[in-house]
Structures are given as C-alpha cells and as structure tokens.
Design a protein around this nucleic acid. Structure first.
Lengths: 67, 67
DNA sequence: AAAAAAAGTCAAACATGTTTTACTATATAT
DNA sequence: ATATATAGTAAAACATGTTTGACTTTTTTT
C-alpha cells in the first residue's frame, strides 16, 4: 500500500530517523514503509498519522493490492 | 485497540462468518479482532472500514495502549 | 425443549511486521 | 573534495497477525 509519509515528513523537515524516534520505531521501519516494502501495523499507522497531523485514511492510499 | 466492528456489523445484520467472507479472512480472525485479542493488519482494517461503510479512523478507537 | 446458527476458544503452523547490526550509497554542508 | 548526515539495503532473530481444524458455549429459531 502506498502512502504520503515521505512528503509529509519532509514538509515538517524531519529525517527518517527523527520521525522514527517520535513514532518509537527504528529508522529501518520508517524507511521500509516509505518505500512500501510492507505496511505498518495499525497501531503504528495511527501513531504516524498523529505525528504527521493527519488521519490514517488520508495518510495511506488504498490502491492496487500488489503494485 | 478497541473498535466498533461488532456494533456496525450487527447494524447490518451480518454474522462474524459473513463479514469474514466479505473481508476475505476467517471467522476466527473477525472474532479475535472484535474481542480485541489483537489488531488487524492495516490492509484488513481498510477492507473492514469499506465493508462497514466507514473510515479506519472512525472504526478504531485510539485509546490506552494495553487495556 | 430440541435443533440450528452464531459466537468463543485453543494449539500448531505459517505469514507478515519490527529490531538489531552492519555495511553501502546518496545528499548536504564545510 | 572531504566530512557528515541522511537514506537504502540485507540477514537473522523475534513479535504479531492469520489460517486451519476441532471442539465448547451461547443465542436464536422452530
């Protein structure tokens, strides 16, 4: 599933690492999610939405299954 | 994390099994999620929200971490 | 009250998400 | 051009989500 994390993160001048810290996950997790290697857990999705001041529904793009 | 799945499902007169079928998961998965044994994957959360004609943000209740 | 449908539960197997450590590549600053 | 920060990647270990099959309990229907 695609998402707007990178864009929103950059708008706030956060590095993957600083976002990771705020979200209590590792840098690699943020990297993998931004690059759509896998989807975050629902919990993490909510934390990211909160940090990036948006909603889960806006942050993630419900598109084609495996593209 | 808590959720409104049971209420919304009942409003639509669906059994756990029929909801499970629509969402392409097993009955046990729906049961476990309704009873907050664990959270669904983000994918499944979106599918459930769609079936129950709501949003992920409305369907799940961002409350205390492990209560 | 009996039958049928729906819901709850459990263990084992399997799939996906996250961490850790380490190393490489790209961008930004000096 | 060198240094520093940021981003990408990978394998192993571990944690969490999902399935399967089976069986029990509760609710609804007849």
């Amino acid at each position: 599933m695609e998402n707007n994390i990178r864009e929103r993160r950059k708008k706030r001048q956060l590095s993957q690492e600083s976002l990771a810290k705020k979200a209590n996950v590792t840098r690699q997790t943020i990297n993998a999610i931004e690059n759509a290697k896998y989807d975050p857990s629902l919990e993490l999705a909510f934390r990211l939405a909160e940090i990036l001041e948006t909603t889960v529904d806006q942050l993630f793009i419900k598109g084609v299954k495996s593209e």
